[in-house]
Design a binder for these strands. Structure first.
Length: 791
DNA sequence: TGTACACGCGTTTTT
DNA sequence: CGCGTGTACA
């Protein structure tokens, strides 16, 4: 469609956009790549584009699929789109993460995917338990193959769509061959438990599409327009998935990717930056739009970010620019130790509030490691500054919550052994370790699930009456809950995989407005409680389970927790169930079959599995936000503090000697810097205490890479109490290129003669120089002791 | 079965 | 340093 300039100026969807932004919004046919620099109005472009497709092109909302990186981003995008189109239309658009899309598709096409509709989703904790069980079964020592490392290997394989068999074929060294066996056994465990891990969600969806042409066809017809945000952080499996959906015909390929290679920070998690760099090769007809004007930050902040990122070698050249005011120079604070650093941050926060009238909610503190939050928290608390934190120990990872959720998971899917075994004797109900082992052994011997064995424990050898009674009581309890939830198998043969038949209904992918809604699946066969009127609410059900399981009593009597914090957390879980139920009922008000307890429970469990910490962050204006640099992606704050700019921390020590990872660390720093709108402070400390050990630090090399004209250094370390500082530790030591000791300079050493400096790391007495000598090769020397002379 | 203590271990970042 | 796990005891 041909649009005149006048058309555009008059269209409220375009009027306030720049030329490149308009191009991105109005491009309709064929692949589109939007390379959006930080703060270039990407979200605005995406939401306008969706509105454009719906309102101007006339596309049906349910033909649009928008994929975001977090659930929170999805929610916000839906909200912003709803303001442009109607509430109802916005609801019909599929906006979600890759993982929740897959979770829903796998439930919708459970039959074709070879899955029960009520499969469990395993989180990291569940995965570790499953790996441990696999190790046990294989008689492999967990010390040589730590579950976390094994899981990382498995996860990498899955992200590359490499299954156990192929992994085994490719495994050539000792370690890989063992991991191959563990991988295989791990999958068996999951299969038996009817559980999927995060990576399986993607992998199984790809498999579903590959094996069922009719499903793929249906999905292609449904999702005619695909938008993927944060494309630089997609992995191989996600690429394949998106590509499969978008490749209906050569004419179609209505795929729009937005992202910024400079903000790719999830390489360690399998993200493949090549996906975005090679987008144009994948889709030859791609229209590329570059958004390089920044609307977010001051000139100084942007100069710092831009200067830093230019140090990355493997990068498409790009320059960010802004018409915003120059603002204040970026502060670099040198502190004595982390207490002083945190105290300084607290002080600055109060100052910004008093002097600049900036609300607490408009300020944030970023750090590389979650463990660094503690000191900052203490300081803010002492200063009386309210804060919220993207928690390191997530709500759903707390013991008591995992216990409670394990009950719900086991009720929904009794085949789920990890969760069933977790609750078997929690709270203690007379089922000993030995008894549990006996049950498991019997399950293996008879090739049945532990749940099935629980139903007829009399066949398990070596159980006394007490154990038998305990088991029967527990089994009865479980069945009762399943009955209440409408999941009871009733007369269906218990002997032949009853749990596999258990009918929990899927969380439907579509809404009432979709004509392509899947036909309602048969569910809750015959259970009397499928009568809506007589079912308890989800909230009531959760309360019932907490009460009757004894969990409530257990934590009420917990002497190790005098403040009853755990009990309060259980209360919070009940609230979350209620909150979910309210939202869910509103969303599915027209869809009576979706309102059964069984379906609510399944949907609730899915949400719990896929929700992340940062989704819980509320943007209330009342408190300062603390989070990791990774979590900061996609956000912005008028005031930003980044703490811990030290070598080994940012960049992290594991990245040393890995140029690729080093560049990712620089991007991470770049992401943090570009979150700031008006004020930015970077800080480092001279002595940091880690694991109770205080050690001198080396400044982050990134500090040397900042443009001096946009930086103001403050040294707070000198006046502080504590061990005397070295005399030579000057304020600007890390920024100054003193005495001509800069990379590239020629120098003379008393013993090694002439050479050229390749690199300098650190400052003051700890600075190290890497020199290539003409006759002695390359050496690293301590600057202080080397007594170098300019040559 | 529950409690108490010692030891040892680990710490990147997350859907 | 702080947590969780594992072991020894009551």
């Amino acid at each position: 469609m041909a649009l005149t300039a006048a058309d555009m100026a008059n269209d409220p969807l375009l009027a306030d956009l720049t030329e490149p932004q308009r191009q991105a919004v109005t491009h309709v046919q064929g692949p589109l790549l939007v390379l959006a620099g930080a703060g270039s109005g990407k979200t605005r472009v995406i939401t306008r584009r969706i509105a454009w497709l719906v309102l101007r092109v006339g596309l049906a909302p349910w033909n649009i699929l928008a994929i975001t990186f977090t659930n929170k981003a999805a929610g916000e995008m839906r909200e912003r789109v709803a303001r442009l189109v109607s509430e109802r239309q916005a609801r019909a658009i599929t906006i979600c993460t890759f993982h929740s899309l897959c979770a829903r598709l796998l439930r919708q096409y459970a039959r074709q995917a070879g899955l029960p509709e009520n499969y469990s989703i395993y989180d990291t904790g569940d995965q570790e338990r499953a790996v441990k069980r696999a190790l046990e079964r294989l008689q492999i020592s967990g010390t040589n193959f730590p579950p976390s490392r094994v899981l990382a290997a498995i996860s990498n394989a899955k992200n590359d769509l490499v299954g156990p068999e192929e992994f085994a074929r490719q495994a050539h060294d000792f370690s890989d061959r063992h991991i191959a066996r563990i991988y295989h056994q791990y999958q068996e465990q999951l299969q038996k438990s009817q559980a999927l891990d995060f990576d399986d969600l993607l992998m199984r969806t790809v498999a579903l599409m590959r094996q069922h042409a009719e499903v793929l066809q249906e999905l292609r017809e449904r999702f005619q327009y695909i938008l993927i945000d944060e494309y630089q952080d997609t992995n191989h499996a996600q690429f394949i998935l998106a590509n499969a959906l978008a490749s209906g015909s050569a004419q179609q390929q209505n795929i729009c990717a937005t992202g910024d290679p400079d903000q790719s920070i999830y390489g360690w998690r399998g993200a493949n930056i090549q996906n975005i760099l090679e987008f144009e090769q994948h889709y030859p007809r791609t229209a590329v739009v570059r958004l390089e004007q920044n609307y977010r930050s001051t000139k100084h902040i942007l100069a710092v970010a831009d200067h830093l990122i230019q140090f990355n070698q493997q990068r498409k050249h790009k320059r960010l620019w802004t018409e915003n005011e120059a603002g204040r120079p970026v502060q670099v604070a040198v502190c004595f130790n982390e207490q002083q650093e945190a105290g300084w941050v607290a002080h600055e926060i109060r100052r910004h509030r008093a002097q600049d009238q900036i609300a607490y909610g408009d300020m944030a503190v970023f750090y590389r490691l979650n463990s660094l939050s503690r000191v900052v928290e203490d300081a803010l608390r002492n200063a009386g500054i309210p804060y919220q934190i993207a928690r390191g120990t997530a709500f759903y990872e707390r013991k008591e919550i995992k216990d409670a959720v394990a009950y719900l998971r086991a009720i929904a899917n009794p085949a789920d052994e990890v969760n069933l075994l977790r609750i078997l004797n929690t709270p203690a109900r007379g089922i000993s370790e030995a008894t549990a082992k006996g049950l498991q052994a019997q399950a293996v011997a008879r090739n049945q699930t532990v749940y099935e064995i629980l139903q007829k424990p009399q066949h398990v050898p070596g159980l006394n009456t007490r154990a038998l009674n305990a088991i029967r009581a527990f089994a009865t309890l479980l069945e009762k809950w399943r009955f209440v939830a409408g999941l009871w198998e009733g007369a269906r043969g218990l002997g032949q995989g009853a749990s596999r038949q258990a009918a929990s209904a899927p969380a439907s992918l579509s809404t009432e407005s979709s004509p392509l809604a899947p036909s309602p699946l048969p569910h809750s066969g015959g259970a009397p409680s499928s009568d809506l009127e007589h079912q308890p609410s989800l909230r009531g059900f959760v309360e019932q389970v907490l009460r009757e399981s004894g969990l409530h009593a257990l934590y009420k009597a917990d002497k190790a927790d005098p403040d009853q914090e755990r009990l309060a957390n259980l209360g919070e879980l009940v609230s979350s169930a209620q909150q979910f139920e309210t939202d869910y009922e509103k969303l599915h008000a027209q869809d009576r079959p979706a309102l059964t307890l069984a379906r609510k429970l399944a949907a609730y469990l899915e949400q719990i599995s896929l929700v992340s910490d940062q989704d819980a962050l509320n943007s209330t204006q009342g408190s300062v936000t603390l989070m990791t640099l990774h979590a900061a992606k996609g956000l912005e704050f008028p005031v930003v503090f980044i703490v811990g700019l030290e070598d080994g921390l940012l960049p992290h020590s594991r990245c040393r000697d890995h140029p690729d990872q080093m560049e990712e660390e620089r991007r991470l720093c770049f992401v943090g810097i570009t979150r700031a709108k008006r004020f930015l402070s970077l800080s480092r400390v001279k002595f940091r205490t880690v694991f109770g050990k205080t050690t001198p630090t080396i400044p982050s090399p990134f500090l040397r890479e900042l443009p001096q004209a946009s930086v103001a250094v403050t040294d707070l370390s000198a006046g502080s109490a504590g061990p005397a500082l070295d005399e030579g530790d000057e304020v600007q030591a890390f920024l100054d290129d003193e005495e001509g000791m800069v990379p590239g300079a020629r120098v003379r050493h008393a013993m090694f003669g002439l050479g050229r400096i390749l690199k300098i790391s650190g400052s003051g007495p700890h600075a190290r120089v890497l020199i290539r000598f003409e006759t002695y090769g390359t050496k690293t020397l301590v600057l202080e002791h080397a007594h170098l002379e300019p040559a």
